[in-house]
Nucleic acid binder design. Sequence first.
DNA 1: TTAAGTGCAAAGGCTTTGCAGCATA
DNA 2: TATGCTGCAAAGCCTTTGCACTTAA
Lengths: 133, 133
Amino acid sequence: MKAGLVTTHRQLLLDILREAKGHLDAKQLFQEAVKRDHRISLATVYRTLRLFKELGLVDEMHLDKTRCSYEIRKSGEHYHVICRGCGRVTEFKSPIVNQLVEEVRRRSGMTVVRAVLNLEGYCAKCNDKKKSS
Amino acid sequence: MKAGLVTTHRQLLLDILREAKGHLDAKQLFQEAVKRDHRISLATVYRTLRLFKELGLVDEMHLDKTRCSYEIRKSGEHYHVICRGCGRVTEFKSPIVNQLVEEVRRRSGMTVVRAVLNLEGYCAKCNDKKKSS
DNA sequence: TTAAGTGCAAAGGCTTTGCAGCATA
DNA sequence: TATGCTGCAAAGCCTTTGCACTTAA
């Protein structure tokens, strides 16, 4: 795994990802990057995201077929709650997942590197909207 | 939600999905379908998959950026263990996930419709290969 | 008969890549 | 100077769509 050079573009993209509260896809990341340095290209964004992913700096999420977003890897593993109504993504942590990982390891001899857990549904706000409409 | 007609093509695709032990992507499904009826087109496969998804007959999985596979919805919720080495997908069930769903509901008022849980890692076989190489 | 499904080919969106130029160690 | 990064444009891949024809109720 190559570390690659620290360039201004890469620094910029990392900064944006760090600042981003939610999750960004390549296009959003590019649009934000262009605001700060109009010479950056979309190709660089993709290449950099791939590099970051290989370095373990970011995690890739596949919410649906077309959307694929990235976020800075946080210290602890966390999981996602996605509202099908408004599209909001929030995070949560729970030690329960570790129990699962351990169970799988015991049962199948699998070494689990990463656990992806997405809960899809409707948040409180969107539930209210559905009721009132 | 429209039920749609039961056509020979749709029946064929449903059969293949039911027979498939693992998970199929659109292309694989198409290739298998063509063997049995060479007049079917890839467009129909996509259109049918979308219909099945809307009807709740199949579930869509987003393993990575380019691969998106489908499987018949089983009676109970189950989750996936994906080997990064050989790409094999196996399934498991665990009641622990329901605890999590309940926890999220209590904490945030979210109504969870679906839980997607993928454990990524290396299976016993691939672990051995890594050690011996 | 008539609404719905289908094949074909074209278009669409996102992502990757080839290559020449540029920047960094 | 040499290696690696970048922009640009083109190509790639998967998926969707428009339209005319066909099929099933």
